[in-house]
Write a protein that binds this DNA or RNA. Sequence first.
RNA 1: GCUGAAGUGGUGGAAUUGGUAGACACGCACGUUUCAGGGGCGUGUGGGGGUUGCCCUGUGCGGGUUCGAGUCCCGCCUUCAGUACCA
Length: 935
Amino acid sequence: MSEYNHLEIERKWQSFWKENETFRVSSQSDKPKYYVLDMFPYPSGAGLHVGHPLGYIASDIYARYKRLKGFNVLHPMGFDSFGLPAEQYAIQTGQHPAVTTEENISRYIGQLQHLGFSFDWSREVRTSDPGYYRWTQWIFSRLFNSWYNLAADKAEAIETLIAEFEKAGNQTVQAACDEDTPAFTAEDWHAFSAEEQYELTLKYRLTYVAEATVNWCAALGSVLSNDEVKDGVSERGGYPVEQKRMRQWMMRITAYSQRLIDGLDTIDWSESLKEQQRNWIGRSVGALVDFEVQGHAQTITVFTTRVDTIYGVTFMVIAPEHELVPTITTPEQQQEISQYIEQTKKRSERDRMSDVKTVSGAFTGAYALNPFNGEKIPVYIADYVLAGYGTGAVMAVPSGDQRDWNFATHFGLPIIPILDAQKEVALQADPTKEGRYINSGMIDGLSYAEATDRLIQWLEANGKGKGKINYRLRDAVFSRQRYWGEPVPVYFRENGKGGTLPYLVPDAELPLELPAVNKYLPTETGEPPLGRAEGWNYQGQWEYELSTMPGWAGSSWYWYRYMDPANQEAFAASDAIGYWKAVDLYIGGTEHATGHLLYSRFWNKFLKDRGYVPEEEPFKKLINQGMIQGRSNFVYRVKGHDAARPVFVSAGLKDRYETTPLHVDVNIVSSDILDVEKFVQTRKDIVGEQPEFILEDGVYKCGAEVEKMSKSKFNVVNPDDIIKRYGADTLRLYEMFLGPLEQAKPWNTNGIDGTYRFIRKLWRLFYADNGQWLVQDEAPKPAELKVLHRTIKKVEEDIEHFSFNTAVSAFMVLVNELGSLKCRSKAVLEQVLVLLAPFAPHISEELWEALENQPGTISTARFPQWEAGHLVDDLFEYPIQINGKVRATLAFPPDKSPDEIQQEVLASEAVAKWMDGKPVKKFIIVPKRIINVVV
RNA sequence: GCUGAAGUGGUGGAAUUGGUAGACACGCACGUUUCAGGGGCGUGUGGGGGUUGCCCUGUGCGGGUUCGAGUCCCGCCUUCAGUACCA
């Protein structure tokens, strides 16, 4: 083939790779391993758009590069195939989600293959395969059979906990457990029935059942996790979400809070992503302080990060939901309190968030006593205190906290300054930690750090409180009231007291397969869809759990399955895990920061604790590719015309009319100029019978705006069309060339011709326009070697830094220069192909094959290793600055000593002319840069 | 409010981390090719001036350090992303 035909070449090599299983990788090799992973996609019905492949192209370039560098590279792909859209579609059409999913996956695979990715498809996984979710269920069972030993700071088998209970009850055990766990001794334990003992262990297991306040989305018929709720509405669909108490499966992720924070320091992720996780976990160091309530036996415990402000406390505020509210409210205040609680309940979460300015609250009539000075302070309730954070009670310090200050001002409560460095606290709060304490009893005159230590010591010595680290992270809700997800491998058996207890389905009986149902909706009694399944019970008598696992279950361990995807005995064989260990490079979007990426780290740490995997962190390095946004085009319809005879005005003239902008399909717009004919043909719905177009400069220009790429905005660009027109190699290069990988950018095809031109220029280094073969077995010219090795070095560095856009630029320079040098040398052009193979694999393979097939040349190994680049410099030209201005240029060999250079420079006529006979004050040589002379 | 990132030509973006700012590409202009074309090739292209193998100016704004600053320091402004009655 002597003409560049991307369609033919790409088809040829894609089937070559497929038939030869070129990218199949073994888990046994003498080579060093490298694991490159993409976040696997949910196979949606819309197929891929040009934004999706961005990360896959980057990872593919890196994987191919690593192979050329002699690594054994694991680079798999699979599908996160449980999810909402297939189920919604099933509800509408009755088609089983498995069918929809299968169709979508086939389409995805086809599209991915057309991009020329080097995935090892023999390792493909799908989370909705029973052979896969068997092991998701198995991991769930391991979590159920584990507890978190705080003393050892790791998860252990539940048996070790039971052994402790038998020896010493639960008083010496340090464990992460439910707050309502009662105390018992070894004797108590032995006196309990088997069911009672079992029930107690449920309070310690890492996955457990609880009555939890959950985000209930009625429209979706399911609960959502906190990260699936955005601004009080569901992330998918934007439906309203309300708080509801329901029985739920929970994951005790909070046991891992500190380790999830600490682990961040050991991994190579972007600072912003780590920060997002840190904020989500929300560690705050502070203290618990017990306040006695006057006239009551109970105390109210508050959490504070500023114990040092304790002498500035002038009142206390507790959440309306606080358990002591009914107890401490005085009869006189009863009505006001009830009214306030009623009013709070009516306000949705969203209202509470949007309305942060209004001060509201109610006095309970009760007084608490400051443990340090016995001061009597009134106790209020207010909705700015959240029941779910800390202890649901705060000590209010109006001089140091603006919210407390607003509250105090509104209710006429006193404000006491506590630091000499505080600004006038009558005007506003000053949260400073500077200066020395005043009005502060035992800490008067101390600094912030001294005071905090002293106070916590006092609290602990007097049993009035203690230092405490608090986390914002909540245990994760693990139930979804949906059909298309992994069944929870649990059934319920009577406990002999009228209730039921959850028991695991034995491992040998996994997978617990998803049963058939007649409809994918909740039952009439409000049970999840699985309630419709006939005979859905264990051994014919005990009902299975009816909810399924959340979307993140299957994705929280999938990288291990790729290591050994067909294994029937384990989620992956230990020698495969021992070989691949963890993901070296993970590429994906930032939207999973507080979801998938956090849960995966949690499960990984758990699996490590229980000895199933070797590494504490699953993803060593993470790159977030930026989203490719759509660029929408608009036409402007003039208002006030008959719908059958609409008038459209070109963007430049639209200000002269009253217009309605309408999205127009970007695929019939080129450089913002509308293909009017196609528009009229394809959009009968808006053009009517006789549309009129007001043109400018003879064409109709569209308006444009950057928006998210979406079908409804008519701005989706399909990679298939681009591949057809320009080829996958061009698309790959172009997406990389578009800008830095991690940066969000709107899609445009403005520069794609330049990339296509580059590919054809490369082709013309090998074949002349008339199809004649140009490459000869001749010695490379020095200039060719120079530019070649400069490029190799640059590209190597760029790939290692994921700066693919500049690497592509370097290729363009290389090909331009070799073109003008009329390079014919086989040795040089071979290297060019190796260099380019990760980026544009099809054309590289094709030209490599052509090289091999030329008579008279010795066939070498198919794609040898990447040869390290080295600089070939005979002379280096230094611009010479005299007092800041470049006045001359001199060339020196790279090994010349600085002293010799200095002598020669000063001796040279060109320089002396500008120095005017003045003495040299400074002489600076920056190697390979510049020479600077100051006189 | 807090946290993180970023402001460079008409456009996307480079700049070896303190060393000739604007690489590479798009766009545009001119030229060229027996070029039908939106193709190929070449030249030019930050702004201003000019005696046209020259000068001045220039990286959001204002200062500073340095022989030398897009890059470092201080103070502002703007944009994007995440997050928030978190005690």
